[in-house]
Write a protein that binds this DNA or RNA. Structure first.
Lengths: 155, 155
DNA sequence: TCCCCCTCTGACCTTCTTTGACCTTTTGAC
DNA sequence: GTCAAAAGGTCAAAGAAGGTCAGAGGGGGA
C-alpha cells in the first residue's frame, strides 16, 4: 500500500530525528542502492516531501565527495504561535498552501494526523459551498478560526 | 431488497468496526473487484453513505500507492452532535443564536468555558471582516467548521 | 400504471509515482 | 592543464492509482 516514496520519506525522517542539530547528510547513490531504485527517485522524494514550504532546506554537491544535506527548520516555540499563524495564513490561501501548513503543523507535533484530517475535511466542506473566486479568501479565514481555537492551549 | 450499495456499505462498516482507531484504508480497485462492480460504484457508496453528516471523513490519494481512507468521527453522542452541527447551525446564524448554541454546548459539557471563549473570539475576529449582509452566513459556516474539529474526542 | 429517485456503469480525466537516458559539476591522477 | 571517475541533476514518458459525469436501469410509492 505504501509507495516506495513513502518508505524513503519515512526513512529520512527517522534519520533526521536521530541526527544532531536537525541536519542529515546522505549520498544519493547509496540510498538508491539501499532501496533498490533509480537514483532520481531520491530527487523525487526530496522535491515532493522535503520542500521549503514544509520547513526543510536541502543542499547538494556534485562530484567526488558529493552529498545531499537535509536540514529541518524548527519553529521557535518562543515565537508566538498565534503570530506565526496569522502571518502564514494571510488573507488568502490556496488548497495547496493550506495543505503545506497543515503538514508543517503535524511535523512540529502541534497537530496529530487525525486532527489534521479533521481540519482538512471541515475546510473542504465549508469552502466548497461558495463560488470559486472567493474560496481562497474563505479558506484563509476558516483555517485561521479553526487553528486559533485548536492551538489555543499552546498560545 | 438490499442493493449492491447497501452490501458495500455494510462491508465497510464491518471493517471499520474491526479497525483500530476508527480508521480504515482500502483500495478502490480491489474493493470493486471483490464486489464485481465498476470502481465508480465505490465512490457512489462513499458519497451517499460515508458523509460528514453521518459522522465520517474520507480522504483519498491518487497515483501509485493510492488509497481511500475512511475515518469514523468519535463525536459523543454522535447522533445529536451531527444533528446540531448540520441542522441547527444551518445556512445562516445570528450572533445571538450562536451564543445560545455555545451555552448549550457548555451546559452539556461538550465544551468548557475556556474553549467557548476561544470560539467566540475566533468567530468575532473573522466574521467582522466582511460586510454585514453576509456575516450571518459566514458565522454559520465558520462555527460549523470549528465545531466539526473541536468536538472530535480522539483528537 | 407511471414517475421519480436511487443505483450502476463506462468513457474519459487528473494526479502521483517510478524509471531510464542523458547532462553537469567536482575531484584527483598524471 | 587534461582527462577520467565519481558524484548529483533533469526531464519526458510510462505506469498506477483514484475522480467525474452523463446517461441507462430499476423499483417502489402515488
Amino acid at each position: 500500500m505504501e509507495s516506495l516514496s513513502d518508505h524513503i520519506e519515512k526513512h529520512l525522517r527517522n534519520l533526521l530525528e536521530q541526527a544532531e542539530h536537525g541536519v542529515l547528510e546522505i549520498q544519493r547513490r547509496e540510498l538508491a542502492d539501499q532501496f533498490e531504485c533509480a537514483p532520481s527517485q531520491i530527487n523525487y522524494v526530496l522535491e515532493t516531501r522535503f520542500t521549503t514550504r514544509r520547513g526543510y532546506v536541502v543542499e547538494t554537491r556534485r562530484g567526488g565527495g558529493g552529498y545531499i544535506r537535509i536540514m529541518q527548520l524548527s519553529w521557535q516555540p518562543a515565537e508566538e504561535l498565534a503570530g506565526v499563524i496569522q502571518r502564514e495564513i494571510g488573507e488568502s490561501l490556496s488548497q495547496r498552501e493550506a495543505e503545506h501548513l497543515l503538514l508543517r503543523l503535524v511535523d512540529a507535533q502541534l497537530l496529530n494526523n487525525r486532527q489534521a484530517a479533521m481540519v482538512r475535511a471541515a475546510l473542504e466542506q465549508e469552502v466548497e459551498k461558495i463560488s470559486v473566486p472567493f474560496q481562497d479568501v474563505l479558506r484563509a479565514l476558516v483555517l485561521r478560526a479553526i487553528l486559533t481555537v485548536l492551538l489555543e492551549r499552546r498560545g
